Simulated scan of single mutants.
Amino acid sequence: MEYLEFSIFDLVHWPHAGQKLEGEEQIQIYENHMEEWLLAERMGFDTIWLGEHHFTEYSMTPSPNIMLSTLAQRTKNIKIGNMINALNFNDPWRMAEEFAMLDILSKGRLLIGLGRSADVLEYEKFGMPLEDGRPRFKEGLELIKKAFSQEVVDHDGQFFYVKGGSLTPRPIQKPYPQIYTTCLSPETHAWAAKEGYPVSTLFLPPDRASESYNTYMSERKKNNLEVDPKNYLMARHVYVAETKEKAMEDAKEPMLEFLRLFQNAAVPDTQEELDSFPENFKFFTQFFAPFFGGELTYEGLIESGLFICGDPETVAEEIQFQQEQIGFGQLMCWMSFGNLSHNKVMNSMELFGKHVMPKFKSSVKIS
């Protein structure tokens, strides 16, 4: 059995459907998630990844970097990262400055995840054409790398301009923290592999994820880059309880709530909108299609491998199966989802840390 790294991925959903986001309840949500991330460090997880979303109950971290700055002060060893900052919605020079500060505050534990948002409704509300997402991301990434690697930066691009800029402060890690990117479309696989960026992906069943992994690694090999599973991260919803039956019962309503939150936040309202995506967004026509065909059910999520749920032994066996089929080197565990209670998240994480992770940190084969 291959050695695996395990991380926590969290978007910090608002768990109270129909209740307005205001008041002290928001404080409690942040405190609950912080407690979960501190437990992740104690249980031996390798990294905590936080994501960026806007305008929606789907995520209470529109600026994950602010949360990471707090997390950096409350942890000592675990790596911290954003997966992702939606670079097309941000000023890249400001991002470079924040990354440098975070790397200093964390004493060199920062990982940087960058991508373009895939959530159509965010583009609409920001008034940004879908076709601008990819070129804004690529130019923004170019400017960030200039900020990290050049003493004085001149940049006159399609979207961004800097004249004689010098990054202050500068990151601890040299030449700069490792940059990751999200990867769903075939074009992104080829580009990320050529540029040498490790990638993360989600919502792909094992057979399609295996194709994704093989495509990405084949492209790396073509470009004379190392072919190492550590460069491919797979995100999965994960829930562990004392018995398989309890896990299935506990997680059903929270997973259905997650699907509702995701659909409201990211999925176009009509098939017509989906069909009208521009060329460089066409992959997402396929990605969002299941939401229009009634294909997504709780049982279907488990059967398809998108949700790993059960007692510790069942969960470990499913992770081993998927790792062998796909090849990923890190499992990003999405353990707080929908309206799952804080106590159940904590219990699930403890069971996972005590009884699942150790199986992948040694040479013991799961029978």
Rank of each mutant, 00 (worst) to 15 (best):
F137C: 14
A96D: 06
A147P: 10
M95H: 05
N77I: 02
E187D: 15
R94N: 03
T168I: 10
T168G: 01
M128E: 08
T182H: 04
E131Q: 10
R94S: 05
G140S: 13
M60W: 09
A96R: 03
Y123V: 02
P175Y: 05
T168L: 02
A192N: 00
L102P: 07
D91L: 04
Q150S: 04
L130F: 09
L114R: 07
G108W: 02
T168D: 05
H189M: 09
E151Q: 07
G113A: 09
L110A: 03
R136I: 09
V120P: 00
G127Y: 15
K125L: 15
K163T: 12
A190N: 09
F89V: 08
F89I: 01
K145Y: 05
K125I: 03
G81Y: 12
E97V: 09
A147R: 05
S149Y: 03
D154R: 08
N77P: 00
K125R: 14
K76C: 02
G165A: 14
G127M: 08
L121K: 11
L105K: 01
S69A: 15
K174P: 01
F148E: 08
E139A: 09
P129R: 13
D103K: 05
Q158I: 04
A72I: 03
L130G: 04
A86R: 06
T181A: 14
H54G: 12
H155W: 12
E151H: 11
